[in-house]
Write a protein that binds this DNA or RNA. Structure first.
Lengths: 346, 346
DNA sequence: GTGCAAAACTTGATCGTTCAAACTTCGGTT
DNA sequence: AACCGAAGTTTGAACGATCAAGTTTTGCAC
């Protein structure tokens, strides 16, 4: 309706005709200003701005064979790890991508195979130049398939248990995070620090366990298995795990997730026992409750991922680069779950 | 490196030559199969599948002047309403969009003006066919600007306080949500139900307040203002609000957000007082804590939004359509904040 | 003022698809 | 057997940009 009455958007040709130069000159002013005489450049630039001319993405993409788009899968809603971190990561990634001249195309997929299908289709149709993988696991086929198909990507997450993998990745050193948490609790005077984590076998979970284990005093102490409780993620299981850790004599607890930490802390609260619980991922929930947590440096991760991806896409690629970032311990002492003062100080 | 050794993707022309038909016939098999003789169709289809041919998005977009892309702004991370609901909404929107043949392009913006700039640029460059607005407010200039620029959109959120607005929107009836919550508490026997909400003036907040107000017994009772506490969103302010409501003699509380509800519930817990608190938005936090909350029907919203937007974009547009959806009350009775039994039953 | 390379600018071709119009084939009348 | 319209298929042009190779202009030395 209104669309018909609106003036047609200018193109290179119409604009060039107006100014009295060739289309290529206008194109050069936009893409390679150094090739144009300053006086001409000024004149063209003025017309470009006045007319509101913007190059057509489709035409440019068609000619250059680069869409300046990156694909990203949005995981199902009920994905623990993802949900906690994804929204913040997504925001960072979109912002940093924009700074590099790229945009993000979203898609959803129920499983990894569907994700691969979507990525293949997008890449083959020239809708994306590359993509970012998240939530890697030990049985992950995605890197090899994408490599075989010649689709460029950077993974947020290490190739767990795949020593042969050579693709670029960025990850956060979860072990360093739990180590920091454990060290902090030790500095408060705690000597029996429990670990509440996921069942063995997940790379992420085992990594976080190892950070706790090596920071105990003495490192890897013989009763470590007594102080370790491994359950599925959830507040219920977290609460149950807490009871077992209390029986084991734990006076403080390091957790693999905020969900577990929340379950544990509220169980303790209910039982009238006050003891420090540190979660993982610094979720909004933890923040709202004043619960301490290990925070992943998502902005740095986004920066590193895009730097690597852009390097690959512009053929400035060196050997596959890998980046391991260190998380931060966010201490909080408010709300119902605040960390109480240490039982005694050394 | 590997890219060079990979076979060139087939195009309409190369594929058509291989089969021995014209490019247009192949194109027709894909876009208008009924125009092609069944036997030819079979033959072409087979070749299309075997070759893995996929139409180039860029070429198609250039020719048809439709990108099949929708723009969506990702709000800053520290946005209360958005964060709570955005990730789920986003997932739904992406899924439903895909079902309609559209994809989502993400972008970030610090404020509404930057969002408008981005949308204008995207639209002018032909990168998007339309967009979805979220987080509408009374001072929102976005609808009028987009309308003036001829950019199609559907808003998730009513044009608060702008009776002249005629653009299509989809929204959730917040008042109906708080009304449900209030009615439920009344059914438990509560007679002094408090309202803990945001400062007056926000459309969303006032709407939710009205639902509570009209469901009291008697509706709009004279001491309603005593039972109303309005504070900025946050757990701290929620806790403070709770104390005031307790002084006012409230035995149950309806909140405008899960954040407020959490603050209120934990303050009560701390004070050793058990009383029902119902939040809003059914966030992960509420779920983890076993707190009851009003849930927005995000999938239905996504469906309605896309239906309206697609109708507009394909010129099947009727008059601007508006949809008001009813939220659900999610009752939970577990965790530290479970709703206790009513003080006395009628 | 001629020559000549560098700078500045222009032109033709092309990316891969769809639209519009043209052409060919075919079954059925008359 | 010639004719006709519908069905099936092909061809030319266009979308709007960039690349590559062309042409013109400029500045400067001799």
């Amino acid at each position: 309706m209104t669309a018909a009455s609106l003036p047609q958007r200018p193109t290179l040709v119409t604009l060039a005709r107006q100014i009295g130069v060739s289309r290529q000159t206008v194109s050069n002013v936009i893409n390679a200003p150094h090739l144009v005489k300053p006086s001409t450049r000024e004149r063209v630039l003025k017309a470009v701005i006045e007319s509101g001319y913007r190059p057509s993405v489709a035409a440019r993409t068609l000619r250059t064979n680069r869409s300046m788009m990156l694909g990203l899968r949005l995981f199902p809603i009920n994905n623990g790890i993802t949900r906690a971190v994804m929204d913040r990561f997504l925001h960072q990634l979109a912002t940093i991508a924009h700074a590099h001249g790229y945009r993000l195309t979203l898609f959803t997929a129920a499983d990894d195979n569907e994700e691969l299908d979507q990525l293949l289709e997008l890449a083959q149709r020239g809708a994306i130049d590359g993509c970012v993988l998240t939530d890697t696991s030990a049985t992950d086929r995605r890197p090899e398939v994408l490599s075989a198909e010649g689709i460029q990507f950077v993974s947020f997450g290490r190739p767990w248990g795949q020593p042969g993998a050579t693709h670029p990745w960025v990850d956060v050193d979860g072990g360093a995070g739990t180590a920091k948490a454990t060290a902090y609790l030790r500095s408060l005077g705690h000597e029996r620090i429990g670990f509440l984590g996921w069942p063995a076998g997940s790379g992420v979970g085992d990594d976080r366990h190892s950070g706790w284990l090596r920071t105990l005093s003495p490192p890897g102490r013989t009763d470590a298995d007594v102080l370790t409780v491994r359950v599925e993620d959830g507040t219920h299981s977290g609460a149950q795990g807490m009871h077992r850790l209390l029986e084991a004599g734990a006076t403080a607890i390091v957790c693999t997730s905020d969900t577990l930490a929340l379950g544990a802390a509220s169980a303790a609260l209910k039982a009238g026992i006050a003891l420090p619980v540190i979660g993982f991922d610094d979720t909004p929930t933890a923040a709202a409750l004043g619960m301490s947590s290990v925070a992943q440096p998502l902005e740095e991760a986004a920066v590193a991922i895009l730097e690597a991806l852009v390097a690959i896409l512009t053929d400035r690629a060196v050997e596959p680069r890998t980046t391991l970032l260190e998380p931060d311990l966010v201490l909080r002492a408010e709300g119902p779950f605040r960390i109480p003062q240490p039982p005694e100080r050394n």
